[in-house]
């Protein structure tokens, strides 16, 4: 068996970047076979145009605007069986991981999440590498065949180049017993308050602020910097404990773990509880007044100095370089 199936998660007007990354990875594990995309629910095949799959499956039906993980798992299992593919790649979003767990059971496949590297192994197996212990270590696993399902870690793989021509699309029918599966039960959506940027766990750039900002008002400096980069905003526990920002901002052992391409720590000293939540970022920049701060041990680049003039200057420079209007920068004290 060759070929791989990738789930394409719809988002407003397109598919998630994690889906495009999944397609790129699917090409690696298709072992010369076809890469098939599965697009679920109404909205046409438009969102998949430019995505380099060889075939595109679509499925429609009642309640598929927002499928449950059980429904996703059933659809993927059904499509994979029909196609005879050996591997399914699921986008590495929060819900994608849940789909992997269900699908592994339903499709009797070996499974992994958070995959940062994958190669073909012996006898239909896959060798995958994934970070463990908050990025403080990594493990290499052999996922036995004949079937595997896994989710790449967000941003670990680059998005594939766009396809010149749309892939032929075909519809598949719903599997038997589909109407008996648990549905999503969603009743509404609340965008993360105060954050216009991308979601913390998914962002390719994260800017976090800590106690060094001294007041809740000056946390604006961090948000302005994040906005200039199109980054998500995070915070150390000191900030969320003090109530400057809600606990959903917290990066670290008791908050979110992030692994962006770029992590900028502003006024964060770098307690181990914070480090474990961000150490797997590809590039870490620290801005702190204390040259002895432990954050500089894990950072790739450090700026020692008073953040109050430095951060607005940085925001200004970035906006200039990116051709953005000067914007509301330098509003903090100092």
């Amino acid at each position: 068996m060759t070929g791989a199936l990738a789930l394409l998660e719809r988002t407003a007007g397109g598919v998630t970047s994690a889906s495009r990354e999944a397609v790129g990875v699917a090409r690696t594990v298709a072992d010369g076979g076809a890469v098939v995309g599965l697009l679920v629910g109404p909205g046409g095949t438009g969102p998949a145009s430019g995505i380099p799959v060889d075939r595109l499956f679509t499925v429609e039906g009642p309640g598929l605007t927002d499928p449950s993980t059980a429904q996703y798992a059933a659809l993927l299992s059904h499509a994979a069986t029909q196609l005879g593919v050996a591997r399914i790649v699921v986008p590495g979003t929060a819900r994608g991981r849940d789909v992997v767990g269900r699908l592994a059971v339903r499709w009797a496949a070996s499974a992994a999440t958070g995959v940062t590297d994958v190669t073909l192994g012996e006898g239909g197996s896959l060798r995958i590498t994934r970070p463990v212990f908050g990025g403080r270590a990594s493990e290499t696993l052999e996922l036995p065949g004949p079937r595997q399902v896994f989710a790449p870690k967000p941003h670990a793989f680059s998005e594939p180049s766009a396809a010149a021509a749309p892939a032929p699309s075909e519809t598949i029918a719903l599997p038997d017993g589909f109407d008996k599966l648990p549905t999503r039960g969603a009743e509404g959506f609340e965008p993360t308050a105060g954050s216009k940027g991308p979601e913390l766990g998914e962002a390719s750039i994260v800017v976090s602020g800590g106690r060094g900002l001294r007041t809740p008002e000056s946390f604006r400096l961090v948000e302005d910097l994040a906005e200039s980069l199109g980054a998500a905003v995070g915070a150390s526990r000191a900030v969320t404990d003090a109530g400057w920002r809600p606990s959903s901002y917290q990066v670290g052992q008791t908050g979110r773990s992030v692994s962006p391409q770029l992590y900028i720590a502003v006024g964060i000293s770098g307690a181990i509880q914070h480090i474990v939540g961000m150490v797997s970022a590809r590039v870490i920049v620290a801005i702190n007044s204390d040259p002895q701060a432990p954050i500089f041990k894990v950072a790739d680049y450090g700026v020692v100095g008073d953040l109050f003039p430095i951060v607005p200057a940085l925001t200004k420079e970035i906006r200039k370089q990116r051709g953005l209007p000067a914007g509301p920068t330098g509003s903090g004290p100092g």
Binding site: A109, G135, R136, A137, E139, T140, E142, P144, G302
Partner: peptide, 20 residues
């Protein structure tokens, strides 16, 4: 279906920040 463990590695120690 269980994955077989092949390797457990620690990342190379970070050498400390390059200061601007």
């Amino acid at each position: 279906l269980a994955a077989r463990r092949l390797a457990f590695r620690l990342p190379p120690p970070r050498t400390g920040a390059k200061m601007i």
